[in-house]
Simulated scan of single mutants.
Amino acid sequence: MAAPHADRAGTVPGHIDVHQHYFPDFYVAALHRAGRAASGGAPLPDWSEADCLSMLDRRGIETAVLSLAPPGVQLGDPAGSAELAARCNDYLAELCARHPGRLGGFGALPLPDVPASLAEIARVYDDLGLDGVGLLTNVAGRYLGDPEFEPVFAELGRREAVVYLHPVEPVVDPAPSLGLPGWFAEFPFDTTRTLTDLILRGTLERHDGLRLIVAHAGGAAPFIVNRINNVWRELPGAAQRAPAGVTAYLRRLYYDTASCGAGYGLRLVRDLAGVEQIVLGSDYPFVPEHAVTALADRLADPLFLGTGAATLRDNALRLLPRLAKR
């Protein structure tokens, strides 16, 4: 695979990975103080700026777009979440400024604090120059179509913001007896819950300027789209709030490739939304380096999705104009 630097020499450009996480020391310390030594049931991975950049060079990734992993900035101290979000976003902006073209970033918002989130959206776009914002699929058990969050989505829609949607565990585990980590099943299910909520409550209809990237190929939504359509028909008022129909809203979204190495889920997304709505995402550093390369190599094969890696790169650049300018 060509290294990212090859693009500057006029040969093959590298990949753009929209799903990587960062763990600055102050954030890891905050997690430990809050008793949060895991993310979705997975141990917190080792991460550093230097290791991240070295991995990009070794694995042919030209640009990585970084975001916080679950649990984000809600660590049981509502008053401190805005301060932590601002500190993380400042750090991320400095990181991107040191490495333009190599790193991008999705800023954190301190939901459910709506006024603080609106202020942070302004900082993310007007002061820090980040590439968008990152949201988790639920906020203390409240899904993103909650009417209280409407001012946040109205502002994001007004700005035609790129919103990166990453799953988090639900507040109550619906299957506690299984003893399985949250990333195994609850991540895709929670993604599906919040997408359904955003559609059926009319959030995506009201704010069609939003450009939403959904992690992990949309969770279970592409697989159970028929069930979501059925509840859209039967739930009082849903068809009026979402007149375009469930499939139309899902086709507007972008989907990343993380956790889809075998390709079955990606083929569902391709059939639902088209290859122009798919972007490369690896989930590094939760996945090992060799998995990043294996996924990128598979996506580069035009027989895999009916397209090559260049298409996914172009999709990301079209979606992230700040990144393209860098």
Rank of each mutant, 00 (worst) to 15 (best):
141 G>T: 05
113 D>T: 03
90 D>L: 12
138 N>M: 07
145 G>M: 04
145 G>K: 11
110 P>G: 09
68 L>S: 11
112 P>K: 01
118 L>M: 03
109 L>V: 07
116 A>D: 13
74 Q>R: 13
60 G>E: 10
81 S>W: 00
63 T>K: 15
126 D>S: 04
156 L>H: 10
124 V>E: 12
123 R>A: 15
98 R>P: 03
149 F>I: 03
159 R>E: 08
147 P>M: 06
61 I>N: 08
134 G>C: 14
111 L>M: 13
84 L>P: 06
115 P>M: 00
80 G>E: 08
138 N>V: 09
155 E>S: 01
130 L>R: 07
60 G>I: 09
80 G>T: 02
105 G>I: 00
74 Q>K: 09
143 Y>Q: 12
83 E>F: 07
87 R>M: 00
149 F>M: 08
130 L>Q: 04
138 N>L: 09
149 F>Y: 15
121 I>E: 08
69 A>H: 04
91 Y>F: 13
89 N>V: 04
163 V>P: 02
149 F>T: 04
99 H>A: 11
128 L>P: 10
141 G>V: 02
88 C>E: 06
153 F>P: 01
126 D>G: 06
98 R>E: 10
157 G>L: 08
84 L>G: 03
69 A>R: 06
160 E>R: 15
125 Y>T: 03
81 S>H: 05
94 E>W: 07
110 P>E: 03
93 A>V: 10
67 S>I: 03
95 L>I: 05
99 H>D: 11
146 D>W: 08
142 R>P: 03
135 L>K: 08
153 F>L: 06
72 G>I: 10
153 F>A: 02
73 V>N: 03
120 E>F: 01
88 C>R: 06
133 V>M: 02
116 A>Y: 07
142 R>E: 12
90 D>R: 15
90 D>K: 02
89 N>Y: 06
153 F>H: 15
110 P>Y: 06
161 A>M: 03
144 L>I: 03
114 V>E: 04
61 I>W: 11
61 I>E: 15
131 D>A: 01
60 G>N: 05
76 G>N: 09
148 E>M: 09
111 L>E: 10
115 P>K: 09
157 G>H: 04
104 G>C: 01
134 G>W: 00
115 P>H: 11
147 P>F: 07
134 G>Y: 08
112 P>C: 10
132 G>R: 04
104 G>Q: 06
148 E>T: 14
118 L>Y: 08
161 A>R: 00
78 P>E: 13
71 P>V: 01
135 L>D: 14
66 L>N: 14
98 R>Y: 08
139 V>P: 15
161 A>Q: 02
96 C>K: 13
162 V>F: 10
150 E>A: 11
67 S>Y: 04
152 V>E: 09
88 C>F: 08
111 L>H: 11
150 E>L: 03
66 L>K: 12
98 R>H: 07
66 L>R: 07
